[in-house]
Amino acid sequence: MALFDRTSAAVEARQLVKRYGVVTAVDGVSFQAMRGEVFGFLGANGAGKTTTLRMLCGLLKPTSGTALIDGIDIVADPLAAKARLGYLDEEPFIHPHLTGREFLDFVADLYRMPRGRQREERMERLLNLFDLAQKDGELIGGYSHGMRQKIGLASLLIREPSVLLLDEPTNGLDPRSARLVKDLLEELAARGTTVLLSTHILEVAQALCRRVAIIDRGRIVAIGSMEELRVQAGSAGANLEDLFLKLTAGPESREMIERLLESGS
């Protein structure tokens, strides 16, 4: 039985707007992700997913609107909000001249985690979980993309944040590691961690997320559970891929391919 309140919002975006000069990257995005929920954030390339996530984690300041983490405004009280969340970029932020263990130690100190046996044991477990223990002693700069992704995830999990914002976390992972991450996220959510997951891989979103938001050209075009999305799109029985394509409708790809091949011949 869950010992946390699933009805309280752990992440809340209220009318978030981000403008770069005349370009509006995010245009009034609002949603809530509840405690212990895996919430999917889907959109095409350049739709505004990463910009939204970066506003939520405090890397970007919203032009207008509010981003709340556990009810704390990240702009008004950034230190308190940041202490509660972990953000994994699609290209993880790492220090290439540290070993995996040193990097985890660095992050733990940065977040003022108490030193001692407990922290060391947790670090050891994480390194083993992600198959990085045998790479101990090798600098992160020499890691493959997948290994960087794994050390990035480990650096979040070492300090047990209550909110995880993950931008394409399974990007570059082998099938076994991708499965591990999916299982881990489910388990974390069951224990009360809120996971906001931005991904292109719709199967991952369909398998993991209780609810999803679809963003297109900076605006949320649909939000809800699979059933709710089917109703919004008017497509009973459709899978997430069909719904996504319908809700972010552009020219049919088949039609475009035909046109391209015709122009080439």
Partner: peptide, 19 residues
């Protein structure tokens, strides 16, 4: 890592210096 023996909360300034 030396932190196994150390006690108390980690210090961000020292962590940056060490890194």
């Amino acid at each position: 890592a030396a932190s196994r023996l150390a006690r108390g909360a980690g210090s961000p300034a020292l962590a940056i210096a060490r890194k």
